[in-house]
């Protein structure tokens, strides 16, 4: 029954703000564990999920762990494609400059550091979702 070697296109969709509920943190835990499975992985952030990637998060006042730096380590887990919906940013008064810089080192290009963050419109994001084998929804 085992289908070792199966590679599927997996997208993790993140739609919720980082600290109001645990979805964002537990989604990140799935992404980190999932990296060991050598699948074709990408992440999408939309709706309030775009707040997960904002720069300068400070949780001192709410007594919760600030896990925002973990996103910057995703490149080390071979997560190289992170899509953020433009409409969601704009509706919240955010732009790309409000987000953390997310990069990866391209092993096929002499380990050159490249951006993994891509701002895409909802039409393009819908197209990307349609191309996936599996969509994890958080």
């Amino acid at each position: 029954m085992s289908e070792e070697g199966t590679i599927k296109k997996l997208m993790y969709v993140n739609r919720k703000a980082p600290y109001g509920t645990i979805y964002a943190l537990e989604s990140l835990e799935v992404v980190l564990i999932g990296a060991a499975f050598d699948q074709d992985v990408c992440l999408a952030f939309l709706d309030d999920g775009v707040f997960q990637l904002t720069e300068g998060q400070n949780t001192d006042g709410i007594g919760m762990k600030n896990f925002s730096k973990t996103y910057t380590a995703l490149g080390d887990y071979e997560v190289t494609r992170i899509y953020v919906e433009r409409e969601s940013l704009e509706a919240r008064g955010l732009s790309e400059t409000d987000l953390q810089e997310l990069t990866y080192e391209d092993e096929d290009d002499d380990w050159a550091e490249k951006p993994s963050l891509h701002i895409v419109g909802s039409d393009e994001l819908a197209q990307l979702m349609a191309e996936q084998d599996v969509v994890f929804s958080f």
Binding site: T6, L10, E29, G34, F37, V135
Partner: peptide, 21 residues
């Protein structure tokens, strides 16, 4: 069991159906 069981279910199943918000 661990989260690997979720990834395995996603890879091995024809469809992964999520129930939740």
């Amino acid at each position: 069991s661990g989260l690997g069981q979720l990834i395995e279910a996603a890879v091995q199943s024809d469809r992964l159906v999520t129930f939740g918000d």
